[in-house]
Amino acid sequence: MFRSLLFIPGNNPSMLQNADVFLADAIIFDLEDAISINEKNNARNLVKNYLLTSSVLPKQIILRVNSINTEWFKKDIELLKTNKINYLLIPKTDKSSLLNIEEYLSAFEKENKLVETKIIALVETARGVNDLPLFAENKRLIALLLGAEDLASDLQIKRTETGEEIFYARSKIIYAAVDHNLIAIDTPYTNINNLEGLLKDATYAANLGMKAKACIHPNQLEVVNKVFSPSEQEIKWAKEVIKISLEKPGSGAFQFQGKMIDKPILDRAEKILVKAKHFNLM
Protein backbone atom coordinates (compact mmCIF):
# COMPACT_ATOMS: atom_id res chain seq x y z
CA MET A 1 0.00 0.00 0.00
CA PHE A 2 1.31 3.45 -0.89
CA ARG A 3 0.26 7.03 -0.63
CA SER A 4 3.57 8.62 -1.61
CA LEU A 5 6.57 7.39 -3.58
CA LEU A 6 9.69 9.55 -3.71
CA PHE A 7 12.13 9.56 -6.61
CA ILE A 8 15.75 9.85 -5.48
CA PRO A 9 18.50 10.22 -8.09
CA GLY A 10 20.72 7.17 -7.73
CA ASN A 11 23.87 9.26 -7.88
CA ASN A 12 23.16 11.59 -4.94
CA PRO A 13 24.82 10.40 -1.69
CA SER A 14 23.18 13.09 0.46
CA MET A 15 19.70 11.98 -0.60
CA LEU A 16 20.58 8.30 -0.36
CA GLN A 17 21.81 8.47 3.19
CA ASN A 18 18.59 10.14 4.32
CA ALA A 19 16.23 8.05 2.20
CA ASP A 20 14.94 6.19 5.26
CA VAL A 21 14.11 9.44 7.03
CA PHE A 22 11.83 10.97 4.43
CA LEU A 23 8.11 10.50 4.97
CA ALA A 24 7.60 8.53 1.74
CA ASP A 25 5.82 5.19 1.85
CA ALA A 26 8.33 3.96 -0.71
CA ILE A 27 11.54 5.27 -2.24
CA ILE A 28 12.24 4.96 -5.95
CA PHE A 29 16.00 4.89 -6.56
CA ASP A 30 16.36 6.23 -10.05
CA LEU A 31 18.95 4.91 -12.49
CA GLU A 32 17.12 6.20 -15.55
CA ASP A 33 16.12 9.78 -16.37
CA ALA A 34 17.80 11.47 -13.39
CA ILE A 35 21.17 10.03 -14.39
CA SER A 36 23.21 11.31 -17.31
CA ILE A 37 24.62 8.76 -19.74
CA ASN A 38 28.17 9.16 -18.40
CA GLU A 39 27.12 8.54 -14.83
CA LYS A 40 25.00 5.41 -15.30
CA ASN A 41 27.64 3.05 -13.91
CA ASN A 42 28.56 5.44 -11.13
CA ALA A 43 24.96 5.69 -9.93
CA ARG A 44 24.43 1.95 -10.16
CA ASN A 45 27.56 1.28 -8.10
CA LEU A 46 26.42 3.74 -5.48
CA VAL A 47 22.89 2.38 -5.16
CA LYS A 48 24.22 -1.16 -5.05
CA ASN A 49 26.73 -0.52 -2.27
CA TYR A 50 24.22 1.55 -0.38
CA LEU A 51 21.65 -1.26 -0.48
CA LEU A 52 24.25 -3.82 0.53
CA THR A 53 25.80 -1.99 3.44
CA SER A 54 23.58 0.78 4.82
CA SER A 55 22.31 0.03 8.32
CA VAL A 56 19.21 2.09 7.67
CA LEU A 57 17.02 1.53 4.62
CA PRO A 58 13.54 2.72 3.60
CA LYS A 59 10.56 0.49 4.37
CA GLN A 60 9.83 -0.19 0.69
CA ILE A 61 12.43 0.07 -2.04
CA ILE A 62 11.73 0.48 -5.72
CA LEU A 63 14.39 0.60 -8.42
CA ARG A 64 13.76 2.45 -11.66
CA VAL A 65 15.89 0.67 -14.22
CA ASN A 66 16.77 1.79 -17.70
CA SER A 67 14.71 0.57 -20.65
CA ILE A 68 15.19 -2.99 -21.78
CA ASN A 69 16.53 -1.81 -25.12
CA THR A 70 19.42 0.11 -23.54
CA GLU A 71 22.91 -1.18 -22.82
CA TRP A 72 22.38 -0.52 -19.08
CA PHE A 73 19.27 -2.60 -18.44
CA LYS A 74 20.99 -5.92 -17.74
CA LYS A 75 23.48 -4.37 -15.35
CA ASP A 76 20.65 -2.55 -13.58
CA ILE A 77 18.76 -5.80 -13.11
CA GLU A 78 21.85 -7.28 -11.42
CA LEU A 79 20.95 -5.16 -8.38
CA LEU A 80 18.12 -7.60 -7.64
CA LYS A 81 20.85 -9.82 -6.23
CA THR A 82 21.13 -7.46 -3.26
CA ASN A 83 17.78 -8.89 -2.12
CA LYS A 84 16.81 -5.41 -0.94
CA ILE A 85 14.60 -4.34 -3.82
CA ASN A 86 10.85 -4.79 -3.40
CA TYR A 87 9.71 -3.65 -6.82
CA LEU A 88 11.08 -2.67 -10.19
CA LEU A 89 9.74 0.42 -11.93
CA ILE A 90 9.83 -0.20 -15.66
CA PRO A 91 9.98 2.86 -17.91
CA LYS A 92 7.82 3.20 -21.03
CA THR A 93 5.88 0.06 -20.31
CA ASP A 94 3.67 -1.28 -23.06
CA LYS A 95 2.48 -4.76 -23.91
CA SER A 96 5.53 -5.96 -25.78
CA SER A 97 8.18 -4.39 -23.54
CA LEU A 98 6.52 -5.94 -20.52
CA LEU A 99 6.57 -9.37 -22.16
CA ASN A 100 10.26 -9.01 -22.98
CA ILE A 101 11.06 -7.93 -19.47
CA GLU A 102 9.05 -10.75 -17.99
CA GLU A 103 10.93 -13.23 -20.08
CA TYR A 104 14.30 -11.78 -19.12
CA LEU A 105 13.41 -11.54 -15.44
CA SER A 106 12.10 -15.09 -15.23
CA ALA A 107 15.35 -16.46 -16.63
CA PHE A 108 17.41 -14.15 -14.42
CA GLU A 109 15.51 -15.08 -11.27
CA LYS A 110 15.78 -18.76 -12.04
CA GLU A 111 19.49 -18.56 -12.68
CA ASN A 112 20.12 -16.62 -9.47
CA LYS A 113 17.55 -18.42 -7.37
CA LEU A 114 15.62 -15.23 -6.65
CA VAL A 115 11.94 -14.90 -5.85
CA GLU A 116 9.64 -13.39 -8.42
CA THR A 117 10.09 -9.61 -8.55
CA LYS A 118 6.93 -7.55 -8.74
CA ILE A 119 6.72 -4.68 -11.15
CA ILE A 120 5.30 -1.19 -11.22
CA ALA A 121 4.55 -0.19 -14.80
CA LEU A 122 5.46 3.36 -15.71
CA VAL A 123 2.91 4.31 -18.31
CA GLU A 124 4.29 7.25 -20.22
CA THR A 125 3.68 6.69 -23.93
CA ALA A 126 0.57 6.74 -26.10
CA ARG A 127 1.12 3.07 -26.80
CA GLY A 128 1.43 2.32 -23.10
CA VAL A 129 -1.89 4.02 -22.39
CA ASN A 130 -3.56 2.21 -25.30
CA ASP A 131 -2.10 -1.14 -24.25
CA LEU A 132 -3.34 -0.88 -20.66
CA PRO A 133 -6.25 -3.29 -21.10
CA LEU A 134 -3.82 -5.74 -22.72
CA PHE A 135 -1.10 -5.83 -20.03
CA ALA A 136 -2.79 -4.78 -16.79
CA GLU A 137 -3.61 -8.40 -15.99
CA ASN A 138 0.09 -9.36 -15.94
CA LYS A 139 0.68 -11.25 -12.71
CA ARG A 140 3.92 -9.44 -11.91
CA LEU A 141 2.24 -6.06 -11.78
CA ILE A 142 1.29 -4.44 -8.49
CA ALA A 143 0.79 -0.86 -9.59
CA LEU A 144 0.51 1.51 -12.53
CA LEU A 145 2.30 4.84 -12.43
CA LEU A 146 1.45 7.61 -14.84
CA GLY A 147 4.41 9.51 -16.29
CA ALA A 148 2.78 12.59 -17.69
CA GLU A 149 5.89 14.51 -18.75
CA ASP A 150 7.07 11.84 -21.16
CA LEU A 151 3.51 11.21 -22.28
CA ALA A 152 3.04 14.89 -23.13
CA SER A 153 6.23 14.79 -25.11
CA ASP A 154 5.02 11.69 -26.95
CA LEU A 155 1.75 13.48 -27.72
CA GLN A 156 3.63 16.66 -28.62
CA ILE A 157 1.57 18.75 -26.25
CA LYS A 158 2.32 21.02 -23.32
CA ARG A 159 1.58 20.09 -19.74
CA THR A 160 -0.79 22.47 -17.99
CA GLU A 161 -1.46 23.31 -14.37
CA THR A 162 -5.02 22.00 -14.58
CA GLY A 163 -4.07 18.83 -16.43
CA GLU A 164 -6.97 18.51 -18.91
CA GLU A 165 -4.52 16.99 -21.37
CA ILE A 166 -3.88 13.98 -19.12
CA PHE A 167 -7.46 13.38 -18.03
CA TYR A 168 -7.83 10.50 -20.46
CA ALA A 169 -4.58 8.82 -19.38
CA ARG A 170 -5.37 9.24 -15.69
CA SER A 171 -8.79 7.71 -16.22
CA LYS A 172 -7.44 4.80 -18.25
CA ILE A 173 -4.90 4.03 -15.54
CA ILE A 174 -7.47 4.24 -12.77
CA TYR A 175 -9.95 1.96 -14.56
CA ALA A 176 -7.31 -0.60 -15.47
CA ALA A 177 -5.90 -0.52 -11.92
CA VAL A 178 -9.26 -1.00 -10.21
CA ASP A 179 -10.22 -3.71 -12.67
CA HIS A 180 -7.03 -5.71 -11.96
CA ASN A 181 -6.57 -4.87 -8.30
CA LEU A 182 -3.51 -2.69 -8.90
CA ILE A 183 -2.57 0.60 -7.22
CA ALA A 184 -3.12 3.64 -9.42
CA ILE A 185 -0.25 6.07 -8.85
CA ASP A 186 -0.46 9.60 -10.13
CA THR A 187 2.25 11.48 -12.03
CA PRO A 188 4.55 13.82 -10.04
CA TYR A 189 3.75 17.50 -9.73
CA THR A 190 6.84 19.14 -11.15
CA ASN A 191 6.81 22.64 -9.62
CA ILE A 192 8.49 21.74 -6.35
CA ASN A 193 8.17 25.21 -4.84
CA ASN A 194 4.39 25.40 -5.25
CA LEU A 195 2.82 23.34 -2.48
CA GLU A 196 -0.61 24.85 -3.04
CA GLY A 197 -0.54 23.79 -6.67
CA LEU A 198 0.54 20.34 -5.51
CA LEU A 199 -2.39 20.15 -3.10
CA LYS A 200 -4.86 21.03 -5.85
CA ASP A 201 -3.33 18.61 -8.33
CA ALA A 202 -3.16 15.74 -5.83
CA THR A 203 -6.70 16.34 -4.57
CA TYR A 204 -8.01 16.35 -8.11
CA ALA A 205 -6.20 13.09 -8.89
CA ALA A 206 -7.45 11.51 -5.68
CA ASN A 207 -11.02 12.49 -6.54
CA LEU A 208 -10.66 10.82 -9.92
CA GLY A 209 -9.53 7.60 -8.24
CA MET A 210 -5.73 7.74 -7.94
CA LYS A 211 -4.58 6.06 -4.74
CA ALA A 212 -1.06 7.48 -4.49
CA LYS A 213 1.23 10.02 -6.08
CA ALA A 214 4.87 10.00 -7.02
CA CYS A 215 6.99 12.88 -5.69
CA ILE A 216 10.20 14.42 -6.92
CA HIS A 217 11.13 16.36 -3.77
CA PRO A 218 10.93 15.33 -0.09
CA ASN A 219 9.09 18.55 0.75
CA GLN A 220 6.14 17.33 -1.35
CA LEU A 221 5.56 14.24 0.79
CA GLU A 222 3.58 15.76 3.61
CA VAL A 223 0.92 17.20 1.31
CA VAL A 224 0.68 14.01 -0.73
CA ASN A 225 0.43 11.77 2.32
CA LYS A 226 -2.34 13.92 3.67
CA VAL A 227 -4.34 13.93 0.45
CA PHE A 228 -4.14 10.14 0.05
CA SER A 229 -4.83 9.31 3.71
CA PRO A 230 -8.35 8.89 5.01
CA SER A 231 -9.34 12.06 6.86
CA GLU A 232 -10.16 12.12 10.57
CA GLN A 233 -13.88 12.46 9.71
CA GLU A 234 -13.72 9.53 7.31
CA ILE A 235 -12.07 7.33 9.92
CA LYS A 236 -14.63 8.35 12.53
CA TRP A 237 -17.49 7.66 10.11
CA ALA A 238 -16.05 4.30 9.11
CA LYS A 239 -15.59 3.22 12.72
CA GLU A 240 -19.20 4.06 13.54
CA VAL A 241 -20.58 2.38 10.45
CA ILE A 242 -18.65 -0.81 11.20
CA LYS A 243 -19.66 -0.69 14.85
CA ILE A 244 -23.36 -0.45 13.99
CA SER A 245 -23.10 -3.16 11.34
CA LEU A 246 -21.59 -5.50 13.93
CA GLU A 247 -24.44 -4.74 16.31
CA LYS A 248 -26.97 -5.70 13.62
CA PRO A 249 -25.50 -8.82 12.06
CA GLY A 250 -27.31 -10.13 9.01
CA SER A 251 -29.67 -7.21 8.88
CA GLY A 252 -28.62 -6.21 5.35
CA ALA A 253 -29.03 -2.54 4.66
CA PHE A 254 -29.60 -0.10 7.50
CA GLN A 255 -29.81 3.61 8.05
CA PHE A 256 -26.99 5.71 9.52
CA GLN A 257 -27.04 9.47 9.84
CA GLY A 258 -29.99 9.58 7.47
CA LYS A 259 -28.23 7.59 4.76
CA MET A 260 -28.71 4.06 3.59
CA ILE A 261 -25.75 1.79 4.42
CA ASP A 262 -25.45 -1.28 2.25
CA LYS A 263 -22.68 -3.61 1.22
CA PRO A 264 -20.69 -1.27 -1.07
CA ILE A 265 -20.69 1.37 1.64
CA LEU A 266 -19.67 -1.15 4.28
CA ASP A 267 -16.83 -2.25 2.01
CA ARG A 268 -15.71 1.33 1.67
CA ALA A 269 -15.75 1.79 5.43
CA GLU A 270 -13.66 -1.33 5.85
CA LYS A 271 -11.13 -0.16 3.28
CA ILE A 272 -10.82 3.18 5.04
CA LEU A 273 -10.06 1.44 8.32
CA VAL A 274 -7.54 -0.94 6.75
CA LYS A 275 -5.72 2.00 5.23
CA ALA A 276 -5.90 4.04 8.43
CA LYS A 277 -4.45 1.13 10.40
CA HIS A 278 -1.72 0.51 7.82
CA PHE A 279 -0.55 4.11 7.93
CA ASN A 280 -0.84 4.42 11.70
CA LEU A 281 -3.58 7.03 11.60
CA MET A 282 -5.88 5.64 14.29
Binding site: N18, V21, F22, L23, H217, P218, N219, E222
Partner: peptide, 11 residues
Protein backbone atom coordinates in the same frame (compact mmCIF):
# COMPACT_ATOMS: atom_id res chain seq x y z
CA UNK B 1 15.42 26.24 5.62
CA UNK B 2 14.50 24.32 2.47
CA UNK B 3 16.44 21.30 3.59
CA UNK B 4 13.93 18.46 4.00
CA UNK B 5 15.77 17.09 7.05
CA UNK B 6 15.72 20.49 8.73
CA UNK B 7 12.04 20.85 7.90
CA UNK B 8 11.25 17.43 9.30
CA UNK B 9 13.04 18.23 12.56
CA UNK B 10 11.25 21.58 12.76
CA UNK B 11 7.86 19.98 12.11
Amino acid sequence: TKDPIGLKIAK
